[in-house]
């Protein structure tokens, strides 16, 4: 007989740093900074932080189709939009450190992970989801490629969005965060 009292579980997760309650909400600052480094602002497509020998999408998918992990860190994130054909349309590789002319903008920062008012409440999704297909959560959160501190502290649930919400307002134009590209046929 298994009697699971769920309020206790999240408290444990808090203590182990897998849930909410710590200053950064349990996600290591290093991971968040790394995320920000690659992006012009929160929501921008990451630049390619490695050399690219061949531009074809098969080459990209070789590592980003399934994802790769090493020593507890995500080395190659699984692409959240595997059906999109033209990777280099949005993702570019820096070839130099130099600047043409400096720029004074600091783009929108990665959002803070807010401590939930009650520990067991499922954390809100603290990042944008446009351009992510449905069920893209496993990209960073589930499986061998997911950093340990990003994995959920609960069981075999596969419909993440049932409990984890984004709740952008209508005015932001993001809707529920799932892009329907391309537009449906008339």
């Amino acid at each position: 007989m298994y009697l699971i009292k769920w309020t206790w579980v999240p408290i444990l997760l808090v203590l182990v740093g897998c849930g909410q309650g710590t200053e950064t909400g349990g996600v290591e600052p290093v991971a968040r900074e790394a995320r920000a480094e690659l992006r012009a602002f929160h929501g921008a497509p990451p630049v390619i932080p490695h050399g690219v020998r061949s531009e074809g999408r098969e080459n990209c998918l070789a590592c980003h189709g399934e994802g790769m992990q090493a020593e507890g860190r995500i080395v190659a994130a699984v692409t959240p939009h595997p059906t999109w054909f033209n990777c280099t349309q949005c993702h570019v590789e820096p070839l130099t450190d130099a600047l043409f002319v400096a720029n004074t903008l600091t783009g929108l920062a990665e959002p803070e992970i807010v401590a939930m008012p009650q520990p067991f409440l499922p954390p809100y999704i603290p990042h944008r989801l446009d351009n992510y297909r449905e069920q893209a959560c496993e990209t960073c959160h589930i499986g061998t490629q997911a950093a340990i501190n990003l994995r959920p502290g609960h069981g075999p649930r596969t419909n993440c969005r049932q409990c984890h919400i984004t709740n952008y307002t209508e005015a932001s134009g993001f809707g529920t965060g799932v892009a329907a590209f391309p537009p449906p046929s008339p």
């Binding site: 929108l108 351009n131 590209f181 537009p183």
Partner: peptide, 13 residues
């Protein structure tokens, strides 16, 4: 400070 694709625009959704 940021842009996003406009999901309501039929050109690029």
């Amino acid at each position: 400070v940021a842009v996003a694709g406009d999901m309501q625009n039929p050109v690029n959704k």
